[in-house]
Amino acid sequence: MSPSQHINALQIEGLTVRHGGVVAVADAALRAAPGAITCLVGMNGAGKSSLLRAIVGLAASEGDISLGTRNLSRLPIEARIHAGIAYVPEGRRVFPGLTVGENLLVAGPSGARLRRQRLDRALDLFPQLRPRIQDRAWQLSGGQQQMLAIGRALMAEPDVYLLDEPTLGLAPQIIDDVAGSLRQLAEEGAAILVAEQNAGFAERVADEIVTIQTGRIMPDRPGRIDT
């Protein structure tokens, strides 16, 4: 897919997430632009995961979440995904008992032919997975599972990728591979939002860095953050 205008930006306005009585995210505003990697950095417990989960609909929230001109905030999870959001959760969460191929296909669109094409594309981006396509996902190493999780998100050809701590627990060499694949997806025009506490990684891959502290998005500090 060529970088094109029809890909939508993700826009968040006044988003608040509560866990029990605790405010995890307070009145957050954020924009993830097409063709760019936006990194959401912050310490553990700052609210990064809660923010991403709220965008997908896995956590209840108040406020506006829109994709292009479409407001997603009232939609159930499935509808948000179909609107063009893909989510790569913390801890990968591949389906352990499905094969690598099935893990990818299950996330694909209806239409067998289209699914096959997308499968090929995912395997092109992550060639390490190709020889293991018949293996069960639990047999993969942590790094390979991370690639599978990203590949799975790619199957829906979303406008927006949400990735929660994609480098957690990965060896430095694998982190480089992950960074490379994210860059490629951005170049193809997708909007990418990465929650990350590895500031080094964020600095390396991000076009834009947004800092979140105790549930609040910090005022714009264009360019690089201090590490």
Partner: peptide, 16 residues
């Protein structure tokens, strides 16, 4: 093996 300066001899393994 760890910093990937040279390709490791093997990348297979079970999930950590």
């Amino acid at each position: 093996a760890y910093f990937g300066l040279v390709m490791p001899t093997s990348t297979s393994g079970v999930s950590a």
